[in-house]
Amino acid sequence: MRLENVWLRYHRRGPWVLRAADVRIDPGEVAVVLGRNGVGKSTLLQLAAGVLRPTRGRVLGRPAAVGWVPERFPADQPFTVDQYLGAMGRVAGLAGPATDRAVAHWVDRLGLTPVRGVRLPQLSKGTAQKVGLAQAMLRPPGLLVLDEPWEGLDAAARELVPAVIDEVLADGGAVLVSDHRGETVRLPAARRWAVADGAVAEESPSGPEAMAVVELVVPAARVSGTVARLRADGHHILRVRAAAPPAAASIPDGVAASSAVPSRAEPGAPSLSLGDGVEPGATGPAREAAR
């Protein structure tokens, strides 16, 4: 998909919010849109998603199925989570049974099961944000546009976002995500589009050759075995060290269970730094955490 010389202003005599933006994203790619508040990140994302029409220029090759997660989910609607997601699935063109399956899958996946019967206005901000993510994923998107998806999510839920993004990429979709809080360190392979003064510039490309550091926690007794196994897998071990217990204690179990380490580590052969969080002699369960 490509934005070709796209200009946008909201009113005829208003200032240009975007000027001559020229960017492209291909299937299987993720791009992070960076920039300060109010520079036009959301505008760029909404142009890509098809919410806004360029004042000048063209958007070419937008996939038929687009999922858009707005910055704030519009919770002021008289539906329960189930009713809303069911309706949005059918609006997106899914048949009845397919909608039911997709809703059940994403409700379960995003931990919305306890709130299925709750009306949207009664949801907390983070939960509403998850409903926003679910509605975008009901029909597998060829382009997923996420506007500050980490906003309002708790630590465990924040890990869901990269997992969902990986899934879209694996299915051949493209993903655009904006962030102003540095959460996108979770997406080391992403291209970076910087928005400033109405212009969009791609920062130094970080393709498949880009490297990332993943820190793991393993029981001290298994360190040498793990290091050997990771080396055998082609990873580069930076160091092994004993670590302070609080760091380990602050990592939720849910994170370890859904560890993004394998999906991060395999394709790009990133370096590994082992040992952060290991207390010598610790006998707890094996815990691996990606930060």
Partner: peptide, 16 residues
């Protein structure tokens, strides 16, 4: 009645 953002979500889903 429909919030503006919901109207945009509908637009993304079915086209303008």
């Amino acid at each position: 009645v429909e919030p503006d953002v919901q109207r945009r979500l509908a637009q993304v889903a079915v086209g303008p």
